[in-house]
């Protein structure tokens, strides 16, 4: 387990490196929103939770991961590229003309992308659809959805939450990447959705609150989610926006750092901080 954990921690660092490299090369994007989710995405793709086959992206029995917070696409692209869905160097074409590695995920163009997202609030409903399809087909695959914490201000999330509870979708797990910031400021100041776990509990979900930047806690939470019967699970994943380069962001005087890439001159400093994390 310890060796495996070390390997996964290295993987999370590698994903963070990819995130800052590709967004700095692109000259735009959302590295901080991507980096908060690195442990969860690492655990799913490399910690044994997602049954998937990069050589057969449409394998009907695969587990699904839907990145509803589509602006965090770089964390998904890093995981897909490192899994072998497409050549790793393609991540450096992020946001460039003719590249399928678009600003927000486009399932029609990039293998491994389960949903085209970028208009917030829609991924959980899509996840409910996949989970219902599994039931219709008698399949045992699991569907994971990740939203942001600002994203759950969208009413559709709560429509979806109610419907997932109605159909007792224990094959559905939602991870709320609670990184505490949205575009213009702290999430609880923009529109306070606390208590997030209490709301999902009230909607009929099993809930957990974890430190989502602690890989061990993430692995345990996903294990517990798999064991839940008769209801969907929501993991409120408490994270830091920009985790892995927080010292740099503090020095730059912007711990939200929403929707912008690191300037090229700060890239090495960020990579050094990630390597030391």
């Amino acid at each position: 387990m310890a060796n495996n954990l070390d390997a996964l921690l290295a993987r999370a660092r590698s994903i963070r490196e990819d995130i800052v490299k590709m967004t700095t090369e692109a000259g735009s994007g959302h590295p901080s929103s991507s980096m908060s989710a690195a442990e969860v995405v690492t655990a799913l793709y490399f910690g044994g939770f997602l049954k998937h086959d990069p050589r057969s992206p449409q394998w009907p029995d695969r587990d699904r991961f839907i990145l509803s917070k589509g602006h965090a696409a770089p964390v998904l692209y890093a995981a897909l590229a490192q899994s072998g869905y497409f050549p790793h160097d393609e991540i450096m074409t992020l946001r460039k003309i003719d590249s399928p590695v678009e600003g927000h995920p486009n399932m029609k163009r990039l293998p491994g992308v389960e949903a085209s997202t970028g208009s917030l609030g829609q991924g959980l409903s899509i996840g409910v659809g996949h989970a219902l399809a599994a039931r219709v087909d008698g399949k045992s695959y699991h569907t994971y959805v990740m939203t942001g914490d600002g994203e759950i201000e969208e009413g559709q999330i709560w429509e979806a939450a109610a419907s997932a509870a109605k159909y007792q979708l224990d094959n559905l797990t939602l991870i709320v990447d609670r990184n505490h910031f949205q575009q213009t400021g702290p999430a609880e100041e923009v529109l306070n959705m606390d208590p997030i776990d209490g709301k999902f509990t009230a909607f009929g979900w099993k809930t957990q609150v974890i430190n989502g930047n602690d890989l061990r806690e993430v692995l345990q939470a996903l294990d517990r989610a798999n064991a839940v019967k008769g209801m969907p699970t929501c993991i409120v994943s408490l994270t830091h926006k920009g985790q892995g380069m927080l010292n740099l962001l503090r020095r730059l005087g912007d711990t939200n750092f929403h929707g912008k890439p690191l300037p090229a001159q700060n890239l090495n400093e960020a990579l050094a901080e990630i390597a030391a994390s």
């Binding site: 959980l124 899509i126 409910v128 399809a133 219709v136 419907s163 109605k166």
Partner: peptide, 28 residues
């Protein structure tokens, strides 16, 4: 009845659920 889902008065979710079903090879 096993292929029919009433998700309530919630059109946004209705469309999204259909999209997910279609992504898993259903004609929704």
């Amino acid at each position: 009845p096993n292929r029919f889902f009433n998700v309530g008065i919630a059109e946004s979710n209705l469309v999204g659920v259909a999209a997910g079903l279609a992504a898993s090879n259903k004609t929704a």
